[in-house]
Simulated assay, not measured.
Amino acid sequence: MSKSRKCLLLLNVGTPDSPEKSDVRRYLTQFLNDKRVIDLPWLGRKILVNGIIIPFRVNTSVKIYSELWAKHGRILDTLTQRLTMKLQKHFEGDLAVKYAMRYGNPSMDKAFDEIKEEGYDELILFPLFPQYAMSTTQTCLEEAHRLIKKKGVKLRTEIVPSFFNDELFVEGIAKQAKTQFDIEAYDHILFSYHGLPNRHLRKAHKNIGYSSNTIEGCSCEKRLEGFKIGCYKAECYETSRLLAKELNISEKNYTVAFQSRLSKDWLKPFSDVTVTELAKQGAKKALVFTPSFTIDCLETLNEIGEEYAEEFYKAGGKQLDLVPCLNDSDEMVKLADSLLKNVVSE
């Protein structure tokens, strides 16, 4: 019997092809029109996104992406490609490794054309998001299944689950911090996660049978419920508790906050407000972790490393450092290897 041919497909959100206005507009149009990102009725979403958000945000986004490109290039794509190559070397001939972006290039559409043409027996989908959210994991998986059906791809499909509380994930981030920073030298630690609209959390609570559909009345930051698909907020706080334990950080010395909001009705506390408050309260040195990202990108390097750092300094802070994501590190490879062993058939 011939050996089964397997393919591992890494999935991430995406990035524009360049910081040129046309490329940024194209990317934002595809991204923000996704019903899993802005979950409004079709007409309301089209009016809001194409008539208000993009026209008012595109020039600002071009400026931000230009700053990112000047220092780091197309960093999300570069680091994901490096991780893909490193995993391919690690797995040798056991499976092929590819990567695709939910929005932009390399596209999922092209990836599934290649997968069909190359004739694999088994496909492992690996969303590179530690915590589950409808605007990241869910939309990537739904698009994958749509393309499988559309293109008539015949193979067995497995999914790498969320890994927010995986021991190797926590240890990997901790190692990134301990090898580069003296953690005890910082006045405060911030765990900053990508924000979500509160309505996403309300939907999640309803879907998992939570007794309260409100965000204000929930206790997700205090405990992790044992649901198959849980609450993003609860998973973020659980990751933070595990990291704090691994790094011996007391509860009073760290804060969990959420960044990248589009409105006030998003998960709180907000990271930008938090860094300002920390400085005003006397913190001179702050260390920031971004545990909802496995690959460094605009939101980590620019938003935290540049914008929030500047706000911290304006409010009296002296030093704000950013712990790198796992990226293409040996720790990320070990994590991927471990996660795959739990889902790949023999």
Rank of each mutant, 00 (worst) to 15 (best):
N342T: 12
L68Y: 06
E307N: 15
L340V: 11
K233A: 02
F126S: 05
T136R: 08
L267C: 07
C218I: 03
D17N: 12
S219K: 12
K21L: 13
S292Y: 05
E67P: 00
M1P: 14
K89H: 08
L320F: 04
I189W: 09
H72T: 00
R241S: 08
D121Y: 09
L9A: 10
K86P: 11
K252L: 01
K178V: 06
G195A: 10
E331F: 03
V288T: 09
G44Y: 08
K151N: 07
S329F: 05
I38V: 14
L9M: 12
F31Y: 02
N248I: 03
I52G: 09
L83D: 14
Y65G: 04
G14E: 04
I215L: 12
S211T: 09
K21W: 00
K245N: 14
F164Y: 14
S212Y: 07
W266Q: 08
S219A: 07
S4R: 14
E310Q: 15
L76A: 03
L335V: 09
E118D: 15
S162Y: 03
N213G: 11
S338K: 14
K150V: 08
L190G: 06
P127L: 10
I47F: 15
L79W: 08
D187K: 13
G217T: 02
Q131T: 09
D182R: 07
P197C: 01
L224F: 11
Q259R: 11
K252E: 15
